[in-house]
């Protein structure tokens, strides 16, 4: 009973927050609602007994990805109302395509036979963090290593596309020079005739 109530609470919050992500006018609010959605979903994962996924969702998606989004939204000067104006023109087409895909997927889902079998691996009383760790470093060691190379490429790519060599005229902060500044270098005394200082 308590479990069901908790589920409905988390599910309700997740759905409402997800809707607010796309309806909120302020993009910063959207990102914050996204964080709320992630948090509610991680609660549902805990109820399902998938504590690893719950922890990952909080640490990676809330802790890193959502905060990164927040930074991007706050730092990039994007006029979202301008973006939305154009989107209205494409709305009918977008809705039409969406409905077609929805109907197709619904037709497939109608024919879906969900069997009642439970995967024995899930029933085993091994904490799933340990189970995932075991299989990740044995059978799936190879994909795990490739994933690390994919991350390396992402890192190299980001640096290649953004890092620029110092251009002439670029002002850089040189701390030793700042500290070595004396009063004579930085302060200039001026005599201002009374009544003329503006």
């Amino acid at each position: 009973m308590v479990e069901q109530l908790t589920f409905y609470l988390f599910a309700l919050v997740a759905v409402v927050a997800a809707l607010r992500v796309i309806t909120a006018r302020n993009p910063v609010h959207s990102v914050l609602f996204l964080v709320l959605t992630f948090f509610s979903m991680s609660g549902i994962f805990v109820l399902l007994g998938a504590e690893f996924l719950a922890a990952i969702l909080i640490m990676v998606y809330m802790g890193a990805v959502a905060i990164l989004f927040l930074f991007v939204v706050m730092m990039l000067d994007v006029d979202f109302t301008q973006l939305r104006k154009g989107a209205i023109n494409h709305l009918p087409l977008g809705i039409a395509v969406g409905i077609v895909i929805l109907v197709e997927l619904a037709a497939v889902a109608m024919n879906l036979h969900l069997s009642g079998e439970v995967n024995p691996a899930l029933v085993e009383q091994v904490p799933n963090t340990m189970a995932i760790g075991k299989i990740l470093y044995t059978k799936y060691l190879f994909p795990f290593e490739i994933a690390s190379i994919v991350l390396l490429v992402a890192l190299v790519g980001a640096v290649v596309l953004t890092l620029r060599k110092p251009r002439p005229g670029l002002k850089r902060q040189v701390i030793s020079e700042q500290l070595a500044r004396t009063r004579e270098q930085s302060v200039e005394m001026k005599k201002v005739a009374s009544g003329e200082g503006a």
Binding site: I146, A147, I149, V150, V153, V156, G157, V160, L161
Partner: peptide
């Protein structure tokens, strides 16, 4: 899939 992503990501850059 991981091979495909590794290849694609490099070529995007």
């Amino acid at each position: 899939y991981l091979g495909l992503e590794l290849m694609s990501l490099s070529i995007y850059v």
